[in-house]
Amino acid sequence: MFKKTTLAASLAVASALLLSTSVGMASGTTRTETATAPAKASAVGKPRAVNYARMRPEALAEHLIFNTDSYDLAQPTQEGTTGRDRLTQDETQKICSELAYKRKDIDGKTAEKIQALAEATIKYPEGGIKLGDWKKGRELAWSGFGFRTAHNPDRHGPGREPGANCYNCHQLAEDRMGGTLGPSLTGFGKLRGSSPEMLKYAYDVIYNPHVYFACTSMPRMGANGVMTQEQIQDVLAYLFDPASPVNK
């Protein structure tokens, strides 16, 4: 009995030594990984050593984002969620990211899927799309404020509404300088007219542009809750109203 116990004990010590040596020897097994093993264990169900060098790049990226204490995953957001939610991808984000990473153009079937996903998100104002106030739309289009978190969270509130960020990427009226990541929208309503079809098209593109442009870089302002229906209609007025500086 005594012998057996000693044997078992020495075996246990030996295996512990072996374990620690193998962990230590395995190139690419870091202290950080050892430290995060419990978190991983609770997520997966059993403890597992993580070797970065043996993981596929996609899997390692997910691991680094969610399991290595790299981000403040508990950080509150303006929309009442957390940092973890901000970093968790939906299907559209997943598909479009993978294409970009692989430097691949979107194929017809995937584009159809993205478009169908987008279509399902779009909600219209009761009583149809109407132009709002172009002056409000102008300020919304200019403002890049809102939903930023990280080290300096935007405090939304009365007089501090999140903006539409349009000028970040688009040239609109010529009295202000816009970016060039997106196409110029100068003279938008004047060039296209303001038929109900055109209004719906512009509303859709702001609400969820993937319905026309699968995997576009343009944010889904309505679908992702960045802008309200009312705000979208104010921006529509800025785009279509003959009195708007966009059409001067």
Partner: peptide, 10 residues
Amino acid sequence: MFYRRSGPMD
């Protein structure tokens, strides 16, 4: 990560 979209602005 450089090509990975997420967040409210994608």
